[in-house]
């Protein structure tokens, strides 16, 4: 089972929800796919047992073979290559490591090298049955989505996997959410939260992933959010009212369920609801 936690808008509480859920439904695996700004480790304080660099392929040129014909530059869809009179420049930020330039070079003058662009850490949480995985892209590296694909290879399919996704609705968010069994979208009771929720809903719907909502910093006075969910038949899994205490604990890196253990029951209920939604989606044949 793989549950992804995403949001559209940043700062709505994805990491807090993911961490709390992972702590409440043990044994579980927490996977931080917000590789640009991973924060799960701050709350979970894992003991790291392994760490590995992740590389990507980068083109390089053998100037002895190159005739400066410009074919590579012409074929590169990402404008990552400039061919000059006696040199070739590769813009690493723009390169997608697709292999077109090296494969189609008429002189076979382009070869590929491996370059480290991030790391993956694995570990576990002390005295809990929670495994920990996170990915961190190097500052200045552009291709976070590529690292997310590597991080997801570490998923343990037999466990409950909780993926903490990056904010937004673009390629990185899709890389984290695509192919997961269920997506929990975290929003807040503001017009920004609602607007970005609608965008995120479009993404998960187009990916065909069943989903539900958790409203964090819930405020019943902002009725637009409730009416959006009820009119679109979107299940609201949990409403968490704003609580300055929770915010203060978060600021110190303490997960709410550790100070208010009764919250664990709420998160277990969320997990149960997720399960029943997924079962209801199965056809009668599959159920049998």
């Amino acid at each position: 089972m793989i549950i992804s936690i995403a949001s559209g808008k940043g700062g709505t509480g994805k990491t807090t929800i993911s961490v709390n859920l992972a702590l409440s439904v043990q044994p579980s695996v927490y996977i931080d796919c917000d590789v640009e700004e991973p924060n799960g480790h701050i709350l979970l304080k894992p003991e790291i047992t392994s760490q590995k660099e992740i590389t990507k392929k980068m083109p390089a040129v053998d100037l002895n073979k190159c005739t400066f014909c410009g074919k590579c530059s012409e074929l590169c869809e990402f404008n990552a290559i400039v061919v000059m009179k006696s040199d070739v420049m590769f813009f690493e930020d723009l390169c997608h490591s697709c292999g077109v330039c090296s494969n189609f070079c008429p002189e076979r003058a382009i070869y590929e090298t491996e370059r480290s662009f991030g790391e993956i850490r694995k570990g576990h949480i002390k005295s809990e049955s929670v495994s920990f995985i996170d990915g961190t892209v190097k500052v200045g590296e552009m291709h976070g989505a590529q690292l997310i694909k590597h991080v997801r290879k570490e998923i343990k399919p037999d466990s409950i996997n909780i993926i903490d996704a990056p904010p937004g609705t673009s390629c990185s968010m899709v890389a984290a959410v695509n192919g997961t069994d269920f997506c929990i979208l975290v929003t807040e009771s503001t017009p920004f939260g609602l607007n970005d929720l609608k965008l995120a809903v479009q993404v998960v719907r187009s990916l065909g992933i069943p989903f539900g909502i958790i409203i964090n910093k819930y405020d019943e006075n902002f009725t637009e959010l409730d009416s959006y969910c009820s009119s679109g038949n979107i299940p609201v899994l949990l409403k968490i009212p704003f609580d300055r205490k929770i915010a203060e604990h978060y600021s110190r890196g303490i997960p709410p369920v550790q100070v208010r253990p009764e919250l664990k029951e709420d998160f277990r209920q969320v997990y149960k609801t997720v399960n029943s939604i997924m079962q209801a989606r199965c056809t009668p044949d599959e159920k049998r």
Binding site: E36, E37, V137, V139, G168
Partner: peptide, 10 residues
């Protein structure tokens, strides 16, 4: 600006 440190931020 956008959140994060990825391509749209750059």
């Amino acid at each position: 600006g956008p959140p994060g440190i990825g391509c749209p931020v750059n």
